[in-house]
Simulated scan of single mutants.
Amino acid sequence: MDIIQSIAVYGAGSWGTALALQLARNQIAVQLWDISPEHIQVLQTEKENKRYLPTIPLPSYLTPNADLAKVAKSSHYHLIVVPSHGMRSLLQRLKPLLTDQDAIIWATKGIELDTGKLLHEVVIEELPFCQHYAVVSGPTFAAEVASGLPTAMTVAANSQVLAKTIAKAFSANNYRVYTSTDVIGVELGGAIKNVLAIAAGISDGLGYGANARAAIITRGLAEIKRLSEVLGAQPETLMGLAGLGDLVLTCTDNQSRNRRLGLALGQGKDLETAIAEIGQAVEGAKSAHSIGLLAERAGVEMPICQQVYRILYQGLAPADAVKALITRDLKAEF
């Protein structure tokens, strides 16, 4: 792989736009596509994403474009930043436009809803000719990246060469990128932490305090590690930016949509109302189901994630979920 001079970015929400901004500021030609042509037209007219990242102008290297074919043909590098439930359908649309020379990168943090498959598995299924793929993840809020605040993240690829190539594209004085080849570990860390952030938000919404939040983060990390190790991830990945770093960020700061959803549920709001008030996709709400499928297949116990699923989809009262966790049989921590 060579130096990235151009890249196609799919998904013009807050996170997709933020990553596009970072790349464009590094003088990489970015073509930014979205499933909504109307949204792209607004970006073209207003020269900023007022809906998600107001007051941050789009640099000259960033071009919003509603023509999927033209965007796909603009580069051999493709960064997908759509919700996990839209990943497969986008890949199906891209398939006739790509070749085995193209690299597929995704910043989506989720697991496929109906199948419980990791997103690299979806990529391999839909693009069997794909030889180069990677995932970017870590403790990164879109607004802070878009504002140019100091940030660190991880890129995991199926080759160290590709990981280094992508890292160089994002890196700047404000942005540090670490490389990895542990795609599974980075994917799982980014997906499961969303469900745990809902749990932390529920606990805080109930007024249970800092002790309970710390317990959720710590025992939640144990759940991530158990599942990840069974599925072949490297344990050290889960102690890094894409694991512990992202978990702490998402569970403790109200910029997190997943945490805000949990807060609303803990304060007595129903799921539909809470998501409507947030106004953007909340990946953890869908991942709670797919992680359950994955854990069941792997034979791994994930009690916090299970209780979040029961609250979201089985009508369990948040306080009863906490009681169920606390009154489980006593056991050794390790």
Rank of each mutant, 00 (worst) to 15 (best):
E223R: 00
Q280C: 10
D270H: 13
S89Q: 14
A317Q: 15
P318M: 11
K164G: 10
T63M: 12
A222R: 14
K164S: 14
G205K: 12
L263E: 12
L261T: 05
I40Q: 05
L312S: 04
A142M: 08
G220N: 01
N194T: 11
F334I: 13
A298S: 03
E223M: 03
D246N: 03
T140L: 07
D253N: 15
A210H: 14
S14M: 02
P64A: 04
D2F: 11
N174M: 12
P54N: 02
Y309W: 12
G185T: 09
Y61V: 04
A222L: 11
G116A: 05
M302L: 11
L231R: 04
L293T: 09
G243K: 11
S290N: 09
L263M: 14
I311E: 01
K286Q: 14
N254S: 15
T115F: 06
G185A: 05
G16Q: 08
E333T: 06
Q27R: 08
L271D: 07
L294G: 01
V177Q: 04
H39C: 07
V322L: 14
V155L: 02
T63Q: 14
P235Y: 07
T237S: 05
A210N: 14
E125S: 14
P83D: 00
D329Q: 15
A8G: 10
A172Y: 04
K331V: 12
G116Q: 03
G16Y: 06
A298E: 02
P96H: 09
W15F: 07
S228C: 09
A142L: 07
L271V: 10
A156D: 08
H132W: 13
G232S: 05
A66I: 09
N174K: 13
Q101R: 14
K164N: 15
E144R: 06
L227C: 01
Y178H: 08
Q101H: 13
L188G: 05
S89K: 15
F141T: 03
D67E: 13
E272P: 06
V145C: 13
S171A: 15
I202E: 09
A212Y: 10
G220R: 04
A18P: 00
T250A: 11
K225C: 11
L21H: 00
K225Q: 12
L98K: 00
L62M: 03
P37Q: 02
P37A: 00
A212P: 01
T115Q: 09
L97P: 00
S180E: 06
W15M: 03
M87H: 15
K168P: 00
E112V: 08
G268N: 03
R257Y: 01
R88V: 05
A69F: 04
K164I: 10
A107M: 04
T181K: 13
S75R: 05
T273S: 15
S203N: 10
E125F: 10
D34F: 06
S180G: 02
